[in-house]
């Protein structure tokens, strides 16, 4: 590894953090884990003069669940902690699945969930589950605080709607609805320890025998994790039967916009989206 030179800052309070962010502007980048950032720096894909670690800022730690607010994941919370958190296992199956499929044990103990989102890769494994679960990001900056959906947060490959002086303080995943079930599926050439060639997350409720709520998000098939709105529309209010599931799967394959790249051809990705969605729906439809 031959990292370029940079200045490393490790503020212990958000005031100091914001001061540094305002001072350095675009030449600074915040970091919590650094498993993506350091490799990008090493490869010369990004350039920052200043790295600002969030790890010493105590208010950015913590992982909570309560039945009224849901799951709160702080900026410094690492992936492995979420995957091992009992309420997450109980209520947010797709999120835990996605973490268990992500990289290696070592990376999962170092990398943060918020970092995985703010890195804004179209292939980010936790992005589609957080979006499908309707998660919201609490954004803080000097003297400001705002909240947006995780879906709105990612605007393009490597791009978020965060201003230079803002950070995501925490992500809040709302409490699950009654009968809500979810799963995450991923296709990659290796069985494990691999980046997704395509991924899909489905969260849904079946009430009175019909799809009451359906949320489907796809990874690696568009410039950012995308919602499969047309596939959702095919399902809503309908009874789950194989034909319907097949139609929804085909629709998802059509509505995504993958490109051919090193990881798979466009055609293969579309096909895989269809297979993943059909299998996911089939699995969720029989869950009770």
């Amino acid at each position: 590894m031959s990292l370029p030179e940079f200045n490393f800052h490790s503020p212990s309070h958000t005031d100091e953090l914001f001061r540094l962010l305002q001072e350095f502007g675009p030449s600074a980048r915040v970091m919590s884990g650094g498993t993506d950032l350091l490799i990008a720096l090493d490869g010369g894909r990004v350039h920052y003069k200043h790295l600002i670690s969030l790890k010493e800022i105590a208010v950015l730690n913590g992982l909570d669940y309560d039945s009224s607010t849901g799951l709160t994941i702080s900026a410094n919370t690492v992936l492995a902690d979420v995957a091992a958190f009992a309420p997450a296992l109980e209520h947010y199956a797709c999120l835990v699945d996605s973490i268990e499929e992500l990289a290696t044990v070592q990376v999962r103990h170092k990398a943060s969930v918020v970092g995985n989102i703010c890195n804004a890769s179209p292939a980010a494994d936790t992005a589609t589950p957080l979006m499908a679960l309707g998660a919201r990001a609490v954004i803080i900056g000097p003297g400001l605080k705002r909240e947006i959906s995780v879906e709105e947060l990612i605007t393009g490959p490597g791009k978020t709607c965060l201003a230079e002086y803002e950070i995501v303080q925490r992500i809040i995943v709302p409490p699950p609805g009654e009968h809500q079930r979810s799963l995450f599926l991923k296709h990659s050439p290796r069985s494990r320890v691999d980046i997704a060639a395509t991924s899909a997350c489905i969260s849904l409720c079946i009430q009175d025998g019909v799809f009451a709520e359906v949320s489907i998000f796809l990874g690696s098939v568009a410039p950012r994790p995308m919602r499969a709105k047309q596939a959702e529309a095919v399902l809503k209010g309908k009874q789950p039967d194989p034909d319907l599931l097949q139609r929804a799967a085909a629709t998802a394959g059509e509505e995504c916009s993958p490109i051919s790249d090193l990881r798979a051809s466009e055609e293969h990705k579309r096909h895989m989206v269809g297979v993943l969605i059909f299998r996911g729906l089939e699995q969720l439809a029989v869950q009770t």
């Binding site: 290796r190 691999d194 980046i195």
Partner: peptide
């Protein structure tokens, strides 16, 4: 047999990291 290949374009090797050069791992 299945996953490794140096992907080339006009003499340029496109996959120059273990992220995209897929060596089987223990679980494979």
């Amino acid at each position: 047999a299945l996953s490794e290949e140096l992907l080339m374009e006009e003499g340029k090797t496109l996959n120059t990291s273990f992220l995209d050069y897929k060596v089987p791992v223990a679980e494979d």
